[in-house]
Nucleic acid binder design. Structure first.
Length: 486
RNA sequence: GGCUCCGUUGUCUAGAGGCCUAGGACGUCGCCCUCUCAAGGCGAAAACACCGGUUCGAAUCCGGUCGGAGCUGCCA
């Protein structure tokens, strides 16, 4: 039997990280079994339709490398792969269930149900559809249908007995039918199937062998099994996944701007790092490896090592992964990725991006931090002369005046054409040695004068080089006047 | 409320009765290196939710308690 898994998102316009992880696991499982990974769009809720939303799904999945073997755009033998385009395939099955007594037409309006629900709940009870329409005779049903009264088709749920099934992650599950079952709507008034129904029909028609989805479906699975059985179909293997949380009590949410794939990409996280990290929330390889490429994940993934408990998405750890990926990438790629971020604050400043990139690569955790880290190169920040005081460097404004006075003529003496780091370094070190001052006592003030900030990516010599002779000297003079006025 | 699931350091986790004086990673803290920051090196603090039971022996098995989550939609 060929393994077939699917990822079946509804097009909301965003890809939730939990969804990305579900897709990832479904992809990994299919691939490691030489199976097929299918993409199906579940857009049965017309009211939630969002223009362009499927492109978000395509783009995200592709960026993550989760290429589907069958799907809306690539086609396949069991299409179409968009539920709204399959609208006509569901009703016949619903009618078949009506004929066999597993479902029935319901003519209750939402208002009528709301009224009855409110009454039950006011009395302290738990509402469940009351099978009001189940007792309609065939003649009554046909009369109402003929009269054009809006209808839905509901599952005729059993009220006794129990349903058991096995889940790969959570083990054996048993539910009392009286509690887990209810007469859920199969076909809505607008003629569309509900998720609950379409999911079962499509998974079967598309030959899905392993259903991977969030654990929120754990308690509705008995209802799906009832449908599979009623239709005489084989029940797939269930692999329910633990939830990805923001913290112990909240799921990742749109509101906090931390739930979507795009939230992270926009902040300058790398897709590879995100995928790598996500794979590890809820699963581990059983050894101490942490870094995985997608092919390595395909190799290492094991559904039996999936965790049951919800996992909190830790941005700290993600950031660490991201920083590691950045450090490990080749310098050319770093330069390419960092350039747009450099440009935000350095465009037109004639800075050697190549050298800047070398200095920044090991200091970058996420790209969105880059502009703030290099802004000072474009414009000297206003700063307090207290920065010249540093106990460990044995410097203060007084020492700084001497240090700058030492550096200035020396730097002025370097010809424009020889303004290179090695030259600057050698001249500076000679001058410092000759003066008898400590390295830090000279270099700290120099760096403060030309950068205007306490910490910088690189030291005084690197910064002087990046700034160029003219700008370095200009800032040096600025520092001297600040110190003189103090 | 009912049903279901979950419960090892702040976080992700290893752990399937003795290998655990509970291991790894992120984060945190300290030291070293050093012209700052970062990186790197070294080190530290930090957990079996609680209470009972089973057993010679429990993080691991059982029961209860507590805590959290999910479901309880003509959303998915």
């Amino acid at each position: 039997m060929t393994v077939r898994t699917r990822f079946a998102p509804s097009p909301t316009g965003f890809m939730h990280l939990g969804g990305v992880r579900t897709a990832l696991y479904a992809y990994l499982f299919a691939k490691q079994n030489n199976g097929k990974f299918i993409l199906r769009i579940e857009d049965t809720d017309q009211e939630r339709y969002v223009e362009g939303a499927t492109d978000v799904i395509y783009d995200t999945l592709r960026a993550c490398g989760l290429n589907w073997d069958e799907g809306p755009d690539v086609g396949g033998p069991v299409g179409p792969y968009v539920q709204s385009e399959r609208k006509d395939t569901y009703l016949p099955y619903a009618k078949q269930l009506v004929a066999s007594g597993h479902a029935y037409y319901c003519f209750c309006s939402k208002e009528e149900i709301d009224t009855r629900r409110a009454a039950v709940e006011a009395a302290g009870g738990t509402w469940k559809y009351d099978k009001h329409c189940q007792h309609l005779t065939q003649e009554e049903v046909e009369a109402k249908l003929a009269a054009g009264i809006p209808w839905t088709i509901r599952m005729n749920a059993p009220t006794e007995g129990e349903t058991s099934y096995h889940d790969t992650v959570f083990g054996d599950m048993t539910f009392q039918n009286s509690e887990a079952m209810d007469d859920m709507v199969l076909i809505k008034q607008d003629g569309m199937p509900t998720y609950n129904f379409a999911n079962v029909i499509d998974d079967h028609l598309m030959g899905i062998t392993h259903v991977m989805r969030g654990m929120e479906y754990l308690s509705s699975t008995p209802r799906y099994n009832y449908l599979y059985n009623a239709l005489g179909w084989e029940i797939p293997t269930y692999i329910h996944l633990p939830t990805v949380m923001r913290d112990a009590t909240h799921k990742l949410s749109k509101r906090d701007g931390d739930a979507y794939y795009s939230d992270y990409i926009d902040k300058g996280y790398l897709t590879e790092a995100l995928v790598n990290y996500l794979a590890l929330v809820g699963w581990n390889p059983g050894d101490e490896r942490e870094f995985f490429t997608l092919p390595e994940l395909v190799e290492a993934f094991d559904v039996h090592r999936l965790n049951k408990s919800p996992g909190i998405f830790d941005v700290n750890k993600l950031t660490w992964f991201n920083a590691e990926y950045i450090r490990r990438m080749n310098p050319e790629r770093y330069l390419e990725l960092a350039t747009p971020w450099f440009d935000k604050v350095l465009a037109g400043k004639n800075i050697d991006y190549h050298r800047l990139a070398e200095l920044m690569q090991e200091r970058t955790e996420i790209f969105s931090q880059v502009p703030d880290m290099v802004r000072f190169l474009g414009e000297l920040p206003d700063y307090d002369i207290e920065l010249y005081t540093h106990k460990k460097m044995k410097t203060n404004p007084e020492v700084a005046r001497t240090a700058l006075a030492l550096c200035k003529p020396m730097l002025e003496g370097i010809p424009e054409a020889e303004w290179q780091e090695t030259v600057i370094h050698d001249r500076l070190m000679e001058a410092i040695a000759a003066s008898g001052m400590k390295n830090g006592a000279v270099l700290w003030p120099l760096r403060i004068a030309i950068s205007g900030q306490a910490s910088t990516p690189g030291g005084a010599m690197e910064i002087a080089y990046l700034l160029g002779k003219g700008e370095t000297l200009r800032r040096l003079a600025d520092g001297e006047s600040r110190l003189a006025n103090a």
